[in-house]
Amino acid sequence: MIDWLPELAVAILATVLAITLHEAAHGYASLALGDDTAARAGRLSLNPLRHVDRVGTIILPGLLLAFQLLTLGRVEFMFGWAKPVPVDLRRLRNPRYGMVLVAAAGPAMNMFLAWCAAMLAHPLDALADTLPADLTELGVRFIVLSILANLLLGLFNLMPVPPLDGGRIMVGLLPRRPAMALARLEPAGLVLVLLALFLLPRLIPSVDPMAWLIQAVSGPGFRLILQLAGHG
Rank of each mutant, 00 (worst) to 15 (best):
M119I: 04
D134V: 05
F112W: 12
A118I: 05
L92C: 04
M109T: 05
A118P: 04
V87R: 03
A128V: 10
D134H: 03
L72N: 07
M109F: 13
V87L: 10
A114T: 03
V85W: 06
A108W: 06
A104S: 14
L92R: 01
A104D: 07
E137Y: 02
A133E: 12
A128C: 04
L127D: 03
L124Y: 00
A82R: 06
L131M: 13
P95H: 09
T71K: 11
L131K: 02
L127E: 09
L72M: 12
M111Q: 05
G98L: 04
D88N: 15
G98H: 03
P86H: 08
R90W: 08
H122S: 10
Y97S: 13
E76C: 03
R96C: 10
F77V: 06
L70C: 09
L70M: 14
L120F: 12
L92S: 00
M119D: 00
P95V: 06
P123C: 03
T71I: 08
P86G: 10
L135E: 05
P123G: 07
T130L: 14
W81D: 08
D129P: 01
L120N: 02
D134Q: 13
G73P: 01
L124K: 02
L138A: 11
A114S: 08
L120Q: 07
L89I: 07
G73D: 04
M99W: 00
V75E: 02
P107I: 09
A117P: 02
V100T: 05
A108D: 05
V100R: 04
P95S: 09
V85I: 15
M99D: 13
L72Q: 15
L92G: 01
R96L: 15
D134L: 05
L127Q: 11
W81F: 15
W115A: 05
F77N: 01
L92I: 07
A121W: 11
A117R: 00
C116T: 11
A82D: 09
A114C: 07
L70T: 11
N94R: 14
P107Y: 09
P86D: 10
D125P: 00
N110M: 11
L89G: 10
A105R: 01
P86T: 08
L72D: 07
M119C: 14
K83A: 14
P107Q: 11
L101V: 15
V75H: 01
M78I: 15
N110P: 09
A126D: 13
V75F: 06
F79C: 11
D88H: 09
A118H: 00
A103S: 15
G98P: 03
A128E: 14
G98R: 04
V102P: 02
P95F: 06
D134I: 01
R74L: 05
L72R: 14
F79A: 13
G106P: 10
V85L: 13
E137N: 12
H122L: 12
L70G: 12
M78N: 10
L135N: 01
T130E: 11
L113E: 03
L135V: 13
V87I: 15
